[in-house]
Amino acid sequence: MTKAAIFPTKYVQGNGELKRIKSYVEHLGNSFFVLISESGYKRFGSILKESFGDSVKVDFAIFNGECSKTEINRLREEFKAKGSDVIIAVGGGKIHDTCKAIGYYEKAPVVIVPTIASTDAPCSAVSVIYTDDGVVEEYLFVPKNPDLVLVDTEIVANAPARLLVAGMGDALATYFEARASVRSHSKTMAGGYTTDTAFALAKLCYDTLINEGYKAKLAVENKVVTQAVEKIIEANTLLSGIGFESGGLGAAHSVHNGFTALEETHSLYHGEKVAFGVLVQLVLENAPMEEIEEVLYFCNEVGLPTTLRELNVTDKSKEKLMKVAELSCAETETIHCMPFEVTPEDVYAAILTADALGENYKK
């Protein structure tokens, strides 16, 4: 049995670290191409310029908002025209994915600088490619993880608290999905079976959420960095990133993908829908009530959805929810990594049961 695990080359996290970015990247090259949004440039452009100074060449490229082939090709041409040899992404998920794609095609080192901690994507070796209209088109699996992930906790703590909580929802799935992959002997995105290291990190991710999540939410609502905030940012970004990629995926993320069939859920963040997917997975597994109640308590404490009502789904008709269930069970979905067969009928039943559990718990 071949086991495998993959990691970013270096992970750095701390208060004010963006001011020190030059010291972390100068060994990677001599000419830096910084991909950033217009609003991001207004907020962080001066910090980056001050850090790099005049000793190295730095060019800024404004991201157009969509990680599409059109945008990737446009920026590849600009990258080459500037003579750059390192690409840096400052911002959120689509900027990160675009950066990883450009780095892959241009064979350049990749540096990821998340300004929010709402997903576990920064450390991964995958890019989600969309059409120009924002519809998922394909996944690009690149051969290596980013050369550096640099997280400035002061910047993350000043983002809306809901984004950090959404990251907790995404991270909440990490342990349960890795556990399912281990039980089913499923291969992971790392190209082998789950290592003990990846599984231990997935469990640490869950324990950190349970112990530190509520304290971190309260701190970020007040725009301050505490030890709890530091721990949750690491859980959302590094522990969950390694956990999902090298630990394995299961039903929770497939259920999230299923809910994309319902337009009323589109206003919710990825991790908010994943959190409800965790409850659905636990119902599918017939997990002990003690475990389900711990998840319900955590979600209610930090403000993650546990009911269809909180997902903006008021029509619970079988016809509508079966669309979600059928998409969740599409041939390529990771729900088939569960240690038992799962049908759309099973998912439909689990969705209604999870919703009932959530509603009853609130009472």
Rank of each mutant, 00 (worst) to 15 (best):
L239N: 06
K144A: 13
G271E: 07
H336D: 09
E319C: 08
F298G: 01
K217T: 01
K316A: 10
V313L: 12
C299H: 02
N312D: 08
G169T: 06
N257S: 13
N300D: 13
L284G: 03
A190Q: 05
Y269F: 14
T195Q: 05
G93F: 05
L262E: 01
E38T: 11
M168V: 05
A252K: 00
E212V: 00
L308H: 02
I62L: 15
M1Y: 10
F141L: 14
E177L: 02
A200I: 09
I129S: 07
A219L: 04
V220E: 00
K42C: 13
N312S: 14
V165D: 10
T174Q: 01
Y361P: 03
F276W: 01
E230H: 08
I210D: 11
S246L: 07
A330D: 14
D355S: 10
F298T: 01
V278H: 00
A180F: 02
L148K: 03
K318Q: 15
R20I: 05
I102Y: 06
F63E: 04
S68F: 07
E290K: 15
L48S: 05
L296I: 05
P122A: 09
R183Y: 01
N222S: 13
E154W: 01
T237G: 08
I112K: 01
A349R: 12
A350G: 07
A356R: 15
G53A: 11
R20W: 07
Y206H: 11
P288M: 10
A178P: 07
L204F: 11
N158G: 08
T131F: 11
R74N: 13
M338E: 04
A251L: 02
L296S: 04
A81Q: 14
T307Q: 04
N236T: 05
E137Y: 13
Y105C: 06
L140T: 09
S127V: 13
V25F: 07
A178W: 00
K187C: 14
L218G: 06
S55E: 15
V128H: 03
K318T: 14
P109R: 07
L357E: 03
E319D: 15
A159I: 03
V90K: 02
H336S: 10
E291I: 15
G250C: 09
T2G: 08
D346N: 15
I36M: 05
K3N: 09
S186D: 02
E294Q: 13
T306F: 04
V90I: 15
G213H: 04
V58S: 06
G248T: 00
E319V: 11
D207I: 09
E71Q: 14
G358V: 10
F60M: 09
T265V: 10
E333G: 07
V347Y: 04
A200H: 06
S254V: 03
E221W: 00
G16Q: 12
R183N: 11
I36Y: 01
K80A: 15
V136W: 05
V220C: 02
P288K: 10
Y130F: 13
A125S: 14
G247W: 00
L172P: 00
A157V: 07
G191Y: 02
K215A: 15
M338K: 03
N64W: 07
D85A: 11
T237A: 10
M289E: 14
K215H: 12
T314R: 12
P288T: 09
K187A: 12
I112V: 15
K80L: 15
A61K: 09
R309N: 13
E345T: 11
Y361T: 03
P8M: 09
I95H: 01
L262T: 03
E17C: 11
P344W: 01
